[in-house]
């Protein structure tokens, strides 16, 4: 029982990051039925851009808080531009081609972005400058930090913003209409290309926020960090029901909790045979179980024939 609360807190924090990234997968899938496997790399680019900008601003004597905001702004700009370019350059020319083609292209873009990041930032681990003071809190025997609190609050704010955009604005209505019937949305005067581009840009903005959060949480970054994070966020999106916004949020948080609790108890469960560094297996057990028994996910819409 002693580690239960602790692991729930850890799971919530990790889960909010998964949720933000999962939203990017699910928005693009919802609108065009494409799994953008390069999305994890957008997060990675966001982290590395934020490190570069924040560190150099701090080096120039700018206050840490301002430098952090500068890093976030730069990550947002670069990621949004990157998301827009991915759609324009890699996916739009393939619209209407067999489903496998854009999928392979997405994997290709993922490899290209990793290598690009390696060329720019090198193969070594980079340290993310601490943006927030190291304040510790204690609740019911569990410890958590200011950074963790900030991650959960910022994720919640970003997700509320997205929900507002999708359900309360004209662009959001156009996005939902396009996801449901692009040909008819076009008859209503919706420029489908612009709506799809917007989905990529908005998803990438969330990825940038997630990138900064991952960076300041682990204080470390690497050009390959997007791969595993992307795969887990994809798992979260599938768990919630890919194409469904609420599903991505719930799936992300749930996956974070499953992983944290799994890592906390795996030693006891396996009689000490497996340690907490096996935590990654939980995400993939979840993915396999969901795909076997409920491929439409928890909030599943009928995606079977499109998947």
């Amino acid at each position: 029982m002693d580690i239960f609360f602790q692991q729930v807190i850890n799971g919530l924090v990790q889960g909010s990051i998964y949720a933000l990234v999962a939203l990017g997968y699910t928005m693009v899938y919802g609108i065009m039925g494409l799994i953008n496997f390069a999305h994890g790399e957008v997060v990675m680019i966001g982290t590395l851009v934020a490190i570069a900008v924040t560190s150099s601003l701090i080096g120039a004597g700018v206050p840490v808080a301002v430098a952090g905001l500068g890093g976030l702004a730069a990550a947002l700009l670069v990621c949004m531009a990157l998301g827009w370019s991915l759609e324009r350059v890699a996916y739009r020319p393939l619209r209407g081609s067999p489903r496998l083609t854009p999928l392979i292209t997405a994997i290709g873009m993922s490899i290209i972005l990793q290598n690009l990041a390696m060329i720019i930032w090198g193969r070594n681990y980079l340290t993310f400058p601490p943006l927030l003071p190291k304040i510790n809190y204690e609740f019911a025997g569990a410890h958590f930090t200011l950074v963790q609190v900030a991650i959960v609050l910022i994720s919640a704010a970003a997700m509320s913003g997205l929900v507002f955009l999708v359900y309360r604005t004209r662009l959001g209505m156009a996005m939902r209409a396009t996801a449901q019937n692009p040909a008819v949305a076009s008859l209503m005067g919706v420029n489908i290309n612009r709506v799809i581009a917007a989905a990529f840009v908005v998803g990438s903005a969330l990825a940038a926020v997630a990138g900064v959060m991952v960076g300041s949480y682990y204080e470390i970054a690497h050009y390959q960090m997007g791969f595993m994070l992307g795969l887990k966020a994809f798992t979260a999106a599938v768990l919630g029901g890919i194409g469904n916004l609420a599903g991505a949020m719930a799936g992300g948080v749930l996956l974070g909790l499953i992983e944290a609790l799994g890592a906390g108890y795996i030693g006891d469960l396996s009689g000490g045979f497996l340690g907490s560094h096996y935590q990654d297996i939980f995400a993939f057990i979840v993915l396999i179980v969901v795909l076997m028994f409920k491929p439409s996910g928890l909030f599943g819409e009928k995606t079977g024939e499109r998947a």
Binding site: R170, M173, A174, R176, A177, A185, M188, G189, V190
Partner: peptide, 9 residues
């Protein structure tokens, strides 16, 4: 919302 889509422009 469907009716609002008709008046999208």
């Amino acid at each position: 919302e469907n009716l609002a889509m008709g008046a999208f422009l």
